[in-house]
Amino acid sequence: MKVTLKVNGRLRTADVEPRKTLLDTLREDFLLTGSHAGCEHGVCGACTVLIDGEPSRACLMFAVQADGYEITTIEGLAPAPGELSVVQDAFCETHGLQCGYCTPGMILSAHALLEHNDAPTREDIVEAISGNICRCTGYGQIVEAVEFAAERLRKTNAPRNVTGGSDDEPSIDPAAEAGAREGGVLEAAATRQGGRQ
């Protein structure tokens, strides 16, 4: 079946069997290999993507079901090649990862949390990432990363509806293209604090 999906702000088309998961389609048809297969039965969270901004298992959705949604993968989070979002940068600052395999899903879950809540408690963070299993870190530095990112987001004075970068800069953040979503704040903050990278 032919499907047209909106991934990271771009419409992409693939010809897939109905049984092909969104995860396999992202990886194989769109070459977005940042989403990882860990269990393929919905437990580990390595395949987490955002669907209309909400963390979801890409292994628990078929590509044929996924049209019409805004799908965001880890590749859609960095404001520009070589430039990190605040959340991504915070994970680097606290070393909230080791092997990196669960990391894209973990960061997307953290990103979604911080879009709703920029002053999360430890419990909020633990709950938000509880569907993402990490075998390396024991979660300590991940929680620290999210706390650190939240702090930095609170400290930036960026209005909540302004995106970073000038108009002529390429943007691969769908939220930035949409122009009014909070994903743009991350980008703005990242640009402002780029020196830390």
Binding site: T48, I51, E54, P55, R57, L60, S109, E127, A128, G131
Partner: peptide, 12 residues
């Protein structure tokens, strides 16, 4: 509801 699966599965 908070006991149902975890946030990503409750999202779908």
């Amino acid at each position: 509801l908070p006991y149902v699966g975890h946030p990503p599965t409750r999202n779908r």
